[in-house]
Write a protein that binds this DNA or RNA. Structure first.
Lengths: 224, 224
DNA sequence: CGGGACTTTGACACCTCTCAACTCTCGTGG
DNA sequence: CCACGAGAGTTGAGAGGTGTCAAAGTCCCG
């Protein structure tokens, strides 16, 4: 999942019901703290997230880290480039994924429908990443965080009375590395939002959006 | 083309000789200042750049702009997401491109080899964009610019005695919008590099790299 | 030769980072 | 049951890098 604007049309719904049924027997369960693959691993499979949250990261030799994306249900991750994976994929919450052999993306290998779904996912990935460029390069700290919360609310928010609640299974540091900021800036910006009454903190990892319209405005305009 | 680290293996060579021959009759010539497609246009074709330089941009309603990529020979651009293009594609120098019907990427449509080449290009695109994230989010102005020049030198640099010369057909503003900076910062950083003897300016749009090793060091480490 | 766009340079402001201290949470062990 | 410690999160002060605004310089092309 990339943080763009909250008009992500991606979701589980793009995958057919028969597909989801067939996947069930191929599903793999993952424990928090573990990993799905590491940079340098041979990329034999592409994964689709059924439940839980994963984290894709890349690290520079000097230690600087970038969180490439968070993998939420419906996301497809692990697109290969060459023979190896080029990111680490860690498990943030108990998760379940389906593994598809990479040949299914590359040739179809007899399952035209799945081939098409994976290809569509790859193309959507490219488009989402382009949106994310805009955010990393052209938005302020508060705009970034507001955008992030908006997208999460749209994709995985749960109603809580008149409000929307969202879980933040990742650490402040993960959010910072995703948005190109520091943990301190994340923390300070969250405090700002809280003090201005836009959000409230149920706990450190549970946010309640009190003023969705204000948050959307803070997110800075949509693209286009 | 994305600015990552100068280990881009992409080039014309990935496309077979027979392909290049067949393309010649499908080639389309483009004039500087024109455009190949605009955001919102129906995405019927995917393009491969044969010569010249293109520019892919996305604009927010408040005017902020992000240059998504520069299209250099060997690059494939215009991957569709849904029915429409989501970026503008402008022509920076006289250019020649080949247009492939999008069905060739999606189904193969009888040309398995081309299908494979386009798919590989899409996957490489994803990987390159991931590298670009690192740069937008985690590098300083001088690191960004040094990285940019390194990649250009690798891909389109021409030997000039013991040095390497590179053309910068895009404006300072384009470079800024690509790297997530301002034109002033680009200008100042170029001046720094010039004063420190790492580069020299043949003209505003012609750079000579005097100390490639220093430039590479300034680019900050490679990923991994 | 003139005009407009682009580039460079300077001064200054401000946002974010850095470094540091403190608080909070949670699990462990006495 | 409470004390303790480790890790994560928050808050503060100060520094520094980049943006903003303004003006001068340069290039290009009619």
């Amino acid at each position: 999942m990339y943080v763009t604007m909250p008009n992500d049309q991606s979701s589980l719904s793009q995958f057919s019901a028969t597909r989801r049924k067939a996947d069930r027997k191929l599903a793999r369960d993952l424990k928090p703290g573990g990993y799905l693959f590491r940079e340098g691993d041979e990329a034999r499979y592409i994964f689709r997230v059924l439940s839980g949250v994963l984290r894709l990261t890349r690290v520079m030799e000097n230690g600087r880290r970038q969180v490439i994306a968070f993998g939420y249900p419906g996301d497809v991750i692990g697109f290969p480039n060459g023979a190896e994976h080029h990111t680490d994929c860690d498990v943030l919450t108990p998760a379940r994924v389906v593994a598809y052999r990479r040949e299914l993306l590359e040739s179809g290998a007899g399952d035209a429908e799945l081939h098409d779904e994976l290809l569509t996912a790859a193309l959507r990935e490219i488009s989402s990443m382009q949106d994310h460029f805009m955010m990393l390069g052209r938005k302020s700290a508060s705009e970034k965080l507001a955008s992030f919360l908006c997208v999460l609310a749209d994709r995985v928010g749960t109603p809580l009375g008149p409000y929307t609640q969202i879980a933040l299974p990742m650490s402040r540091c993960d959010i910072a590395d995703f948005l190109g900021l520091t943990t301190e800036t994340i923390s300070r910006t969250i405090t700002q939002l809280r003090r201005s009454g836009v959000i409230a903190l149920e706990s450190v990892h549970q946010v309640i959006i009190l003023k969705p319209d204000d948050l959307l405005t803070l997110a800075g305009g949509e693209e286009d």
